[in-house]
Amino acid sequence: MSGFSFPILPTGHLLAIEGLEPPHISALLDLAESYALLNRQGKTQRDLLKGRTLINLFFEDSTRTRTSFELAGKRLGADIVNMSVSTSSVNKGETLLDTAATLNAMNTDLLVVRHGQSGAPALLAQKVDAAVINAGDGTHEHPTQALLDALTIRRRRGRLEELVVAICGDVLHSRVARSNIHLLSAMGARLRVVGPPTLIPSECARLGVEVFHDMRAGLEGADVVMMLRLQKERMTGGLVPSSREYFRFFGLDAAKLAVAKPDAIVMHPGPMNRGIEIDSAVADDPARSVIGEQVEMGVAVRMAVLDVLSRRLRRNA
């Protein structure tokens, strides 16, 4: 699983999908696919990252993404340390860059960062020697989520190009939506975003998507329906009047899904708000929902990313 003729992540970090070229994305997905296969066969590659240190630096709560990176790192044999904001010195007034200097002094090889501020991993990447992986920054990007979504879609539909993908809900605050828009449009899919105007970012169409404010119009003929999480504070912030109104017009239920292609798949990055953005009957329908497979692909994609970013280290070893 080596021998690509070009560096798959030329910057030595994975900070964003925007800027990656289709060959890089395809190479990452191919590698992840092979890890998915190994995982299903119960095989591991525990020597690949042996002696390497991976730090999960999470300034925001996350169970699934952190666990997914942890599992990916362990399957490749890395030493893993989890640092979360509640247990670190960041709460004592230490700045992000002080933290970076500390981690640097510990000879960290791979740094997985989640932060509430857009651009925080990019700032860290300027100051640390480790390869930085953005595990979600503010409302900017969540690159590994987009990769795992793309891999899931590719496995289910055999391709990405020309597929109609509808991303629905709180696009304004969604890093998942941004990364998916960049990735899927680079790979030739036809992107739609669907949501109330107050939750669609300014000039969203210029990202290469078609914007809809009506679920049925937006889901018409879709191959993939990707639901986004609506956070409760959006309602207190006045962007949406109530959860019942939101569910009525923008929540995914069987009736709205009926206008999509008969074999359309339903995705959600989790954690779900059942009865707000998605009806349980849809979320739990094994014929439509691929939410479980998304989680499985998450580990494979993160193994691929760790593999690629550690190649430089292994070459220098």
Binding site: G138, R178, P201, R206, L207
Partner: peptide, 10 residues
């Protein structure tokens, strides 16, 4: 506000 802020998630 605009395309660039949207891309940067600001």
């Amino acid at each position: 506000e605009g395309e660039l802020a949207t891309r940067l998630g600001l």
